[in-house]
Simulated assay, not measured.
Amino acid sequence: MDDNPLSVAADVIRIEGDGLALMRAALDDPSSDLARGFFAAFETIKEAHGRVIVSGMGKSGHIARKLAATLASTGTPAMFVHPAEASHGDLGMVGDQDIVIAMSNSGETPELRDIIAYCGRYDIPLIAVTSRPDSSLGRAADILMPLPQADEACGETRAPTTSTTMTLALGDALAVALLRDKGFSREDFHAYHPGGKLGASLQKVRHITPEGRVVPLVPLGTGMRRAAEAINKGGFGCVGVTDGEGRLIGIVTDGDIRRRFDNGVLDQFVDKVMTKNPRSVSPDTLAAEALGILAKTKITALFVVEDEKPVGLIHVHDMLSTGVM
């Protein structure tokens, strides 16, 4: 056995990848038990009037928590209920309009017994994720999503590795399928993620552009000395050029002036120096998209344009101050 850490790591990734490949093959076959169970779970959750209650113990519990969080953040009301706590009062969190997803690789987790019994007693749909369809959980389930038989990456102890990776991926697949079915948008996603870097990146440009900012602009036909003054006064390293109707048609940067300085650039007009059709964004562009443009083009500022007319300017410093970067 090769104990080189990199070899071990590569072997773990290979084994877990094999497990995911088995699961993908099963989902690609509409007649497989996993595909039929997945579709039934999708339809049941889609039509539910209550929440999705996700439960599991140990490593499966951590995966269950993650699925509940992913569902809740993508438009499907969900919560995690700890199976041991459920036996001591938390079963009251499960309503008669809810659906329960129980996760257990063996299907024989003792702590899940009371939740299983509760679902049966009150006719609450029970969806099971387990690698043993013939287990107590598998037999009790209304809908079964059986994990394909796969080797755990930790052969010495058979600690949950491949099985938890497969369960995690299956939960993500279910959440994304539900998200796409309901047309959940990035705007909806931002409503559930207003804080932190993710929330900042999902804001629109109009929300991170400082109010009252004076946009540096000069009309076509302006001399470069005046344009240079506008660049210095604006403090953004650029000035926009507009036509007679106020539309943005070009940009001049301090770099343009430096590169042409020996050629008497200050005695010319912006018409000859400007870059035509400069990159711009609309007020409704996501901050993350604007940041992507800045990074890809290696520039520091973008004009914000609405109906072809400049209405603002967003600078890389705005990204930093609002947490997008």
Rank of each mutant, 00 (worst) to 15 (best):
M319L: 15
E245G: 14
A117S: 14
G37L: 02
V215A: 13
A10S: 14
V265S: 02
R260T: 00
M93T: 01
S280T: 12
A68I: 13
L320G: 15
T157N: 10
F80H: 03
D96T: 09
A141N: 04
R65G: 04
C119F: 00
G212D: 10
F42T: 02
D142H: 14
G196H: 04
R225C: 06
N277G: 01
D134N: 14
L302Y: 09
V270C: 10
F39A: 14
G255H: 02
L6S: 07
T74H: 05
V270Q: 00
L294A: 00
V265R: 08
K233F: 06
T157E: 05
L112M: 11
S185T: 15
D2H: 08
V52Q: 08
C119K: 00
V176Q: 04
L34S: 08
I314N: 10
H207I: 06
G255W: 01
N232H: 12
G199Q: 06
D18K: 14
P216N: 09
P194N: 04
E85I: 14
L71W: 10
M145C: 11
V241I: 15
H193Y: 10
K66F: 03
V324T: 06
G323M: 04
G56N: 07
I293A: 02
E211G: 11
R213A: 12
R180T: 01
M79T: 10
I127H: 03
K204Y: 04
T70E: 05
K276S: 13
G199P: 06
D18F: 05
A40Q: 15
V54H: 07
G240F: 07
K204G: 08
F184M: 00
L220H: 05
R247W: 07
L20T: 02
N277Y: 04
V176S: 00
H62D: 08
R180E: 15
M274L: 01
I251W: 05
T70F: 05
M325C: 12
K204F: 12
L174P: 02
R180F: 05
S32D: 13
D318E: 10
N105T: 15
S135T: 00
S87D: 12
E308W: 09
S106C: 07
T74Q: 03
A40R: 15
L320H: 12
A41G: 14
T322C: 00
T76R: 02
T285V: 14
T167E: 12
P194W: 07
A227L: 14
M93K: 11
